[in-house]
Design a protein around this nucleic acid. Structure first.
Lengths: 203, 203
DNA sequence: CCTTATATTAACCGATACGGTTAATATTGG
DNA sequence: CCAATATTAACCGTATCGGTTAATATAAGG
């Protein structure tokens, strides 16, 4: 990692790492070509190696960067400063939407990176992984006030089901190959309001 | 396509196309190597070309095969011979589980193939696509008896949400890299029963 | 201007992986 | 034992990959 990268104009830095997030989110580590990242970001391949040393260096920087920014966004949205489950959920997802505005493919990258099996990076990633989103989800589950919910449903199943749906929704968005954070934000809110109505007690 | 393929022992046929489904479901068309398919199925690469002519031939066969088998399974499970939405949903998903027993990666392949952008195969696929699963889902939505549902929820949102969750659930299963149809069947039933309880009227 | 330092790239390198072919080897069946 | 068939190892030309290098463009300072 060459520190000169950080002296680049911020817009250029973002263009580069966004290209990298995109390519690495759409290919396995091994089959993601550095040349494609260079082309997508409009710089030469040589410059990419100049800044990040090698492929592994770039990948690990992306990973650490994603973790830091996710943690920061979750904190800024005060995700855990309530015990209303649906409010937590909304803050958590809106924080991810805000990240998506600057880094559209970061979310998809993180998911893929977590399940990456390539031995060259697996260890480095698992070591560094403090389970940002999953851990915060666990905390949500423990902290939330359960008295508002319908008494006849299994909360664990509800919890799983909601996160399946979020995953499935995001999967569909990424497959469409064009990410519009405003649209996602809006549709996410519709879903959350729907869940709140269905799962909480009347009155 | 060489007809001699069909004279092979059925178990060998399945081994070959399952290897192909797996490799094509985990890589884009362009980056899925024929050699990997050969290795995974325990035959030589030359034999693969002998049976299917070329990569495109194999891919297209897999696609048509997947469509036919899906259609057949949906019909065998009498998916549309009821107007109970949750019963339809259950039959539709259980039919997919039954296919999964013989062809674990076919479902994932179909999804990926539908969104494949490679010009060499895109046209051939879209032409042939009569929208098997999506169309049957549409029919489900039109045929179902809506009087059983809670009156205060939006059925379209419910419908979307359920299929997001199914997609997200399957995504998680495929990421875990080991498909156990019995387990999936069981967990799918839990989810459907959960939905039925939540979305229908009491009494 | 000119010079020097820095930023950036085109061209290149060796290795490898790919789709596809071919000629030779197993295997089967009469 | 032979002929037909099934199967493969070895090969081919090409493309792509990660990474390097030597050269060029750009900016800064005197």
């Amino acid at each position: 990692m060459n520190d000169k990268f950080f002296k680049l104009p911020l817009e250029k830095q973002q263009r580069i790492i966004n290209a990298a997030y995109k390519v690495f989110s759409q290919n396995s580590y091994k089959k993601a070509p550095m040349s494609e990242i260079a082309e997508e970001s409009g710089i030469s391949k040589a410059l990419l190696f100049h800044y990040f040393g090698n492929k592994k260096g770039l990948y690990l920087y992306l990973w650490i960067n994603a973790m830091e920014m996710t943690r920061k966004a979750v904190r800024e949205y005060k995700t855990l400063e309530t015990n209303d489950f649906f409010e937590m959920l909304k803050r958590s997802l809106l924080s991810k939407c805000s990240l998506m505005r600057d880094y559209p493919h970061m979310y998809a990258f993180s998911l893929r990176a977590y399940y990456e099996t390539d031995s060259e990076i697996k260890s480095a990633i698992q070591d560094n992984y403090s389970d940002v989103s999953k851990a915060s989800e666990k905390i949500i589950f423990e902290k939330m006030d359960t008295s508002w919910f319908r008494q006849d449903i299994d909360l664990k199943t509800m919890y799983d089901e909601i996160f399946y749906a979020v995953d499935g929704y995001m999967l569909k968005k990424y497959r469409s190959n064009i990410i519009v954070p405003n649209e996602i934000e809006q549709e996410i809110i519709v879903l959350i309001d729907f869940w709140k109505k269905v799962y909480t007690q009347e009155g």
